[in-house]
């Protein structure tokens, strides 16, 4: 029985990756929940817009790299994020003006909005692939590790190693900063409060002189920031492939619904629950378990509950359980 090595192994292969993945999901789910609470529809184009935003960041990164600009040990991509954000703000606002605003004006049913966002998703997907193709693009540069397995072993003298990759560390820190900033914005600023008011009671917000178009614009700007960051961090961590971003849609929705649609705090908690559940269920516990068992006893097999290929099944199971037992989510969401 070797508790310390078990913990290190668990951290290295599961806890840290899950924390990073959860942070990426959280930023994405926050965007979904914000769009939902202000515009009141499920934003299906979210994943693909994340991909397009990341593509813009990658373009900026390559341009900076060829100009010889870098901020090593940090990845150059961080420097290109503002460019991606500006591009996505313009893109989302254009989508709003060209597509969604009309349906707002005619007070269309939510399903029509969802359908329109499906069309936007299609277009976005096409644009992304025009630029990036369907293959994988890696754009992580700078230092790779905050500390590597070897450094950790040499430092602690433990048998198990622990590595913290730069991308993971940046992800977790950035997500934390962004969440704090978002809550500060929503709870402390006039614009943020007007967003909450609009989400709470649209008619009364109108009566109070809150301009809905302004609220919508602010929402898209924040969404753009969130999704470019989420997409870039995900891409730094796992490489960029357009289709993977589409597939993030399901866990992001699951996270937002689990936390209660329209509730930002819920989206964050939901994202970490989904991430840890996905990783935990598809994680091969063999090494961890063998450290925890008395010496001489080895578990047979991988001690893996489900193959990694079924991580979506885990997300889906979470979604189903929430819908069955508590459709408003852990924290009460806006609408059933």
């Amino acid at each position: 029985m070797d508790f310390l090595n078990a913990l290190v192994s668990l951290s290295n292969f599961m806890l840290i990756p899950a924390l990073a993945y959860g942070s990426q999901l959280a930023l994405g789910a926050l965007g979904i929940t914000l769009v939902y609470s202000i515009l009141r529809f499920a934003h299906f184009a979210h994943g693909d817009t994340m991909a397009l935003g990341t593509a813009a960041v990658i373009g900026g990164t390559f341009a900076l790299q060829s100009a010889g600009v870098n901020i090593a040990p940090l990845p150059t991509a961080l420097l290109a994020v503002p460019f991606g954000v500006v591009a996505m703000v313009l893109y989302l606002l254009a989508a709003d003006r060209l597509v969604y605003r009309y349906y707002r004006r005619v007070r269309a049913k939510p399903m029509i909005f969802v359908m329109a966002s499906l069309g936007v998703m299609f277009v976005t997907n096409g644009i992304t692939r025009l630029f990036m193709g369907v293959g994988e693009t890696r754009f992580e540069d700078g230092e790779r590790f905050v500390f590597s397995v070897r450094e950790f072993r040499d430092f602690t003298g433990l048998a198990e190693g622990l590595a913290l990759r730069n991308a993971q560390f940046i992800t977790i820190v950035t997500a934390l900063i962004v969440m704090v900033a978002l809550f500060w914005f929503l709870n402390r600023t006039r614009a943020g409060k007007s967003m909450r008011a609009y989400s709470d009671n649209e008619d009364l917000a109108l009566l109070s002189g809150i301009n809905p178009e302004r609220v919508v614009t602010i929402t898209w700007v924040i969404t753009a920031i969130l999704l470019v960051l989420a997409g870039t961090l995900y891409g730094l961590d796992k490489g960029f492939r357009a289709f993977n971003y589409f597939q993030l849609l399901l866990p992001m929705f699951a996270a937002a619904i689990l936390g209660g649609l329209g509730n930002p705090l819920g989206a964050i908690v939901g994202a970490y629950v989904v991430a840890f559940a996905e990783m935990g269920v598809t994680f091969a516990w063999r090494r961890v378990v063998s450290y925890m068992l008395p010496d001489g006893i080895e578990p047979s097999g991988m001690v893996q509950l489900l193959p990694v290929d079924y991580k979506f099944a885990v997300t889906f199971a979470i979604l189903v359980i929430v819908l069955l037992f508590r459709p408003t989510g852990i924290f009460k969401g806006k609408v059933l």
């Binding site: 529809f41 499920a42 299906f44 939510p110 399903m111 969802v114 597939q247 849609l249 399901l250 929705f253 699951a254 619904i257 290929d309 079924y310 979506f312 099944a313 997300t315 889906f316 979604l319 189903v320 819908l323 459709p327 609408v335 059933l336």
Partner: peptide
């Protein structure tokens, strides 16, 4: 997913199709 908000069905079907393919 039926009987709840209408977009829940959309999200649930998105999920099930991923799983069927998996």
């Amino acid at each position: 997913s039926l009987g709840l908000r209408s977009d829940y069905l959309a999200i649930a079907t998105l999920g099930i199709s991923e799983i069927v393919i998996a």
